[in-house]
Design a protein around this nucleic acid. Structure first.
Lengths: 247, 247
DNA sequence: ACTTGCCTTCCATCCACCGGAAGGTTGGTC
DNA sequence: GACCAACCTTCCGGTGGATGGAAGGCAAGT
């Protein structure tokens, strides 16, 4: 359990997150609980290798080489590649923010996103994680995911906006409806002024591998059109996934 | 110059590249010239931390945590964010493959890409590097980049297809025309059946920070329309870049 | 039964990491 | 200009943890 030298370098990297993209040496040392001199040396090595880059300001940021490496991660690489054209189509047809997400533990992990200038501003980013119970894609993944996950999520419904569903019974009700209808919706449950629709994306064995969602300001009128556009796209993705072999 | 322990872990990571996304432990050890036992321990640490993931087959791949980290890299983060909506617009208007690229050394680095099902198949991927003299975006970046880079590239014009420009004088001639016209074109110089148009993207100080390109099967008729669409998009990106402050 | 190529564990040696301390730099305040 | 605070950088001796050869286990192929 002791801190091996490698893990110290990793702890340093772990000091970076979405709210801390650029850190000074001393901030890095503080955040990773390492003596300054030690951090200095390790950061030097990481920098030399290209894992970290240094801004003019002297702050360190994640370097290009780690970016490269990150792109090699098979975080649903096949899925993303297969989905990409359909996401564009969907965006072209609706001009709304389009999301592709998978489940990561008890959260939703956004693995791709498109949004234009006119789209509703939303919190999600590629790589960000959001609670399942407050997002359209989340509800879909809950409805078609393992029962344990649903149980766990039901026990921890944190409020985000005034419209967030926090009563287990109500969420469960909605989840049942998702299973019946084949799609999920939200109304300002994650951020005000943003509603969403989402459908499941199935893989080669018909199991649900991801969720495809769209965010619009209002879906009272559009719902039917959006659902069918989403379903067409989801089917297209499935077709691509089953035809292309991904070793 | 000696192999510090941290750099060994990094060497291990360096064993991964686009052609080697999944490696067995012994392959990793071989590719990074480390004794198997050492590699075993280091890989174990990286795996525990989440830098590496293990497939069912036993092979290791880049893990989700490194993917996360990579997304934090400011590889033109501001540029990508500013450009994203315009890329979508451009894609919507042309249904062709759209590229956003910057110069990295003497190569072109693609930092964003959109392509649909109907688009011309191309070799570029996000994160991939291609030679400057055989791509539209590359010619643009050559025309507006440092003179030294141009000199170096001129000295090393490797052939890719039958149409690749390999005579320095001819390339220089084209570069001059790019400066005069404000856009560059290619005709099957990188891959057969693919032509491209590209324009420079300027930053806050009017300096060229990136290139925006589009790939089509044929540009005899369309050229004028594509160039103007590209220029509109490039100006939009510049406007966004100058209005949004990127700390 | 033998070979080949993986992965994993062990442990005594030794050297490379550790980190306190000292010194340098920048920038702010009186 | 003198002082202070908060950074960053370099140095170096002692020591504790990384090292990697060796041995053993497992699976597949001959």
């Amino acid at each position: 359990m002791s801190a091996s030298v490698t893990s110290r370098a990793l702890d340093l990297l772990g000091a970076f997150d979405t709210d801390h993209r650029a850190l000074t040496l001393s901030a890095l040392a503080r955040r990773s609980s390492l003596p300054l001199a030690t951090a200095h040396r390790l950061v030097g090595e990481l920098h030399r290798w290209g894992a970290l880059a240094r801004l003019d300001s002297g702050e360190y940021v994640i370097g290009r080489r780690l970016w490269d490496l990150g792109l090699l991660a098979p975080v649903q690489a096949g899925l993303r590649q297969a989905a990409s054209p359909f996401l564009h189509d969907l965006y072209g047809a609706t001009l709304a923010t389009v999301h592709l997400a998978v489940r990561d533990g008890t959260e939703v992990l956004y693995i791709d996103r498109l949004s234009g200038h006119d789209s509703v501003p939303v919190v999600s980013k590629i790589g960000s994680r959001l609670p399942m119970h407050a997002t359209g894609v989340g509800k879909v993944l809950l409805a078609y995911g393992p029962e344990e996950v649903l149980t766990e999520v039901l026990g921890n419904l944190t409020r985000v906006t005034a419209y967030t569903i926090t009563q287990p019974a109500r969420l469960l009700d909605q989840i049942r409806r998702v299973r019946a209808d084949g799609y999920a919706t939200t109304g300002e449950e994650m951020s005000l002024g943003a509603c969403s629709v989402a459908v499941p994306v199935r893989g080669a064995d018909r199991e649900v591998v991801a969720a495809l969602g769209i965010v619009v300001p209002d879906l009272r009128r559009e719902r039917a059109r959006l659902v069918s556009a989403l379903q067409v796209a989801a089917q297209g993705i499935t077709r691509t996934l089953t035809s292309v072999e991904w070793k």
